[in-house]
């Protein structure tokens, strides 16, 4: 999705400068020596040649596995014994008929929402604070990135210990202020919150740095103007910073959508078994997929889940894409209006 958005943006930019280009190289005399023809081909085909390595590699390591997964999904397929009979949609029907699948879908969406939402908000706020005049800037900036450097497995081990139901630190603290022990490992929502906390711990700083980079590109005179107009810090943040960050917000939302729907390490390491709880309280789609494929050896079912997960991500991606386009269109319109004003 990220690639599509940047392409989309590029397209918007191109149409902006399109008038200039048509007057250029396209208008050569048709009659040509070999040299002319070669250079015409060069101009026409070279760009594709230059970008082809990416697409060739993508076809090999992206498209092929994708297609092969779909192929496996319509067969009986054992992890060790390999391909079995063609079964058509049976695997899909099987998976969709399992309560486990729907529980996993619920968990995935719930953890995704609980992690992505707060993460983006917190990252923007942290970035805004880092953007002010701090002493020892690099220190603070590296500081927020530190959790990102820790491996997710280590994070999960530490957090699952903190969230231990009986003797964990979190519950001890809560009990001391009079809140009864929360079932971090037995109840659905608390376990999702705990896992979302791990995800947020790890990714908020990373996203904050992306936002920080975008913030520094915001022209300072906008803030000066806002200040002259009497806007306070909060008003400046809401009316200048956030709107100017829109494309970056969309980028971060899309990348964390893809990551969030595929969350695996954190729930896998959340307890000693790694199966997502005795009742599937925090079993996500990827955990379910792993269990079907590697524990039960049924690659057919696992691939069916993979295909369904892919479709889910595409569906959510399309929603994101349409939002992106609308905002991009709105911006292009803005720019046009601004340019017209400038011409006048």
């Amino acid at each position: 999705m990220a690639a599509v958005t940047s392409a989309e943006r590029a397209q918007v930019r191109n149409t902006g400068s399109g008038a200039g280009r048509s007057a250029g190289p396209g208008r050569k005399p048709a009659a040509g020596s070999l040299r002319n023809r070669l250079s015409a081909w060069d101009r026409r085909f070279s760009p594709y040649l230059y970008i082809s390595p990416f697409f060739l590699l993508f076809a090999l390591v992206g498209l092929f596995p994708l297609a092969y997964t779909a192929w496996v999904a319509v067969h009986d397929w054992d992890l060790i014994m390999g391909q079995g009979e063609f079964t058509g949609w049976e695997n899909f029907a099987d998976v969709l008929g399992q309560r486990d699948f729907w529980v996993a879908l619920r968990n995935t969406l719930s953890i995704f929402i609980l992690s992505t939402g707060p993460q983006v908000v917190a990252a923007i706020v942290i970035a805004y604070m880092l953007d002010t005049n701090l002493r020892a800037k690099t220190f603070w900036r590296m500081g927020v990135l530190l959790p990102y450097v820790v491996t997710p497995v280590a994070v999960a081990l530490i957090f699952s210990n903190l969230f231990s139901q009986r003797f964990g630190l979190v519950n001890s603290v809560l009990e001391s202020i009079g809140i009864g022990g929360i079932g971090w490992h037995s109840e659905v929502l608390p376990s999702h919150l705990a896992i979302a906390t791990m995800v947020n711990f790890r990714w908020t700083g990373y996203n904050a740095l992306i936002f920080l980079a975008a913030m520094q590109a915001i022209p300072r005179d906008l803030y000066e103007q806002a200040e002259i107009d009497g806007a306070g810090r909060v008003r400046q943040f809401l009316s200048v910073t956030v709107p100017m960050l829109r494309p970056t917000i969309i980028f971060v939302v899309i990348t964390s959508t893809i990551g969030g729907l595929q969350i695996f390490d954190e729930p896998r390491m959340y307890d000693q078994y790694g199966r997502g709880g005795t009742d599937g309280q925090w079993r996500t789609l990827t955990i379910y997929l792993y269990e079907l494929g590697w524990t039960r050896s049924d690659f057919g079912l696992a691939s069916a889940v993979a295909v369904l997960l892919f479709l889910l991500i595409v569906a959510i991606g399309i929603i994101n894409f349409s939002i992106t386009r609308r905002i991009a269109d709105a911006e292009a319109a803005d720019r046009r209006i601004r340019r017209q004003k400038g011409a006048r």
Binding site: S164, G168, Q272, T278
Partner: peptide, 15 residues
């Protein structure tokens, strides 16, 4: 009420 090999289970040996 402790699940084997869990963190709580391990801790309970000390308690």
């Amino acid at each position: 009420g402790l699940s084997q090999w869990s963190g709580d289970w391990t801790d309970a040996f000390q308690r």
